[in-house]
C-alpha cells in the first residue's frame, strides 16, 4: 500500500517531468540526467515518460513537414506519364499504392 510519502514523491516526480516538458517546448534543451539525479528511484519512469513525450511531440513535426521521399514519390509517378510499354502508353497517374505506383494505360494507335 502506498504511503503518503510515496504519493508525494510520485506527485513531485510527475511535476518535474511536466517542467521538463515545458522547458523542452520553450526550446531550452533541458538535461534529463539532471532530472534523473533528483529522482533516482523514478529513473526508469522518467526516462520512459520523456521518451514517450518525444515520440508524440515528433508526430506534430511529421505532420507539418514533408519528408525527402514524399517529393521523390510524388515526382516518380508523374515522370512515367508519356512512357510507352509495348502498344500501351501511360497517359495519367490515377492513384498511388503504398509501395508502388498504379498507372492507367491506354492502347495507342488502335
Amino acid at each position: 500500500m502506498a504511503t503518503m510519502d510515496d504519493n508525494n514523491k510520485e506527485r513531485s516526480f510527475k511535476e518535474a517531468v511536466r517542467q521538463f516538458v515545458e522547458a523542452h517546448l520553450r526550446g531550452t534543451a533541458p538535461d534529463i540526467e539532471e532530472l534523473v539525479s533528483k529522482y533516482p528511484e523514478f529513473e526508469h519512469e522518467i526516462r520512459q515518460k520523456v521518451k514517450e513525450f518525444h515520440k508524440v511531440d515528433s508526430l506534430f513535426d511529421s505532420l507539418v513537414q514533408a519528408d525527402e521521399c514524399d517529393f521523390e514519390d510524388a515526382a516518380a509517378g508523374l515522370e512515367l506519364v508519356g512512357e510507352k510499354i509495348g502498344s500501351f502508353e501511360i497517359v495519367e497517374m490515377i492513384g498511388q499504392a503504398v509501395c508502388c505506383h498504379q498507372e492507367y494505360a491506354r492502347c495507342s494507335g488502335r
Partner: peptide, 30 residues
Amino acid sequence: EPTTGSGFVGTPGAIQTTTPSAILSKKEDL
C-alpha cells in the same frame, strides 16, 4: 478510386516514408 476523366492527376496519398511498414506505422500513429 480516381477516374481517368478527372483533370486532376495527383491524389492526396498517405503520408509517405521509406518502407510500407513505416508508412503504415506513421498512419496508425497519426
